[in-house]
Amino acid sequence: MNYHNITTDDMRNGDGLRTVLWVAGCDHHCDGCQNPITWNPNGGIYFGYAAEQELFYHLYKKHISGVTFSGGDPLLPENRVTIFHLAKYIKQYIPGKTVWIYTGYLWEEVKDLPGMRWVDVLVDGEFKQELADVKYHWAGSTNQRVIDVQKSLAEGRVILKED
Rank of each mutant, 00 (worst) to 15 (best):
N5R: 15
Q53I: 08
V99H: 00
E109C: 01
I159W: 12
K161T: 08
F56H: 11
D9I: 14
E109D: 08
E109A: 07
K61R: 15
V146F: 00
Y46L: 08
G25N: 05
D124H: 11
G32Q: 11
G32F: 14
K97C: 10
C26F: 07
V110F: 04
G125C: 05
P74Y: 14
V67R: 07
E162S: 05
H4P: 10
R117S: 04
Y136P: 02
V134L: 14
W22P: 02
R80P: 10
K91T: 04
D31E: 13
G16S: 04
P74E: 11
K97G: 07
T68I: 11
V146R: 02
V119D: 05
L17S: 10
E54K: 15
H28A: 02
S152H: 07
E52L: 03
L86H: 10
H85D: 06
S141W: 06
V67G: 11
T103S: 15
I45F: 13
L131P: 08
Q92R: 12
G71T: 02
C33D: 04
P95L: 01
H85M: 09
W118C: 00
W39H: 09
F84H: 09
R12V: 15
F84A: 04
H28I: 07
T68N: 12
D133G: 06
G66Y: 03
C30M: 06
L59V: 01
E155V: 05
G16H: 01
I64A: 08
N79Q: 03
E109W: 08
G96L: 03
T38Q: 14
V119M: 04
L113C: 08
K161Q: 10
Q34Y: 14
E52N: 01
H58Q: 09
S70L: 10
G72N: 07
A154G: 11
M1N: 00
Q92F: 12
K62L: 11
G16R: 10
P36F: 10
A24L: 14
Y3L: 06
N143Y: 08
E130D: 14
H85F: 01
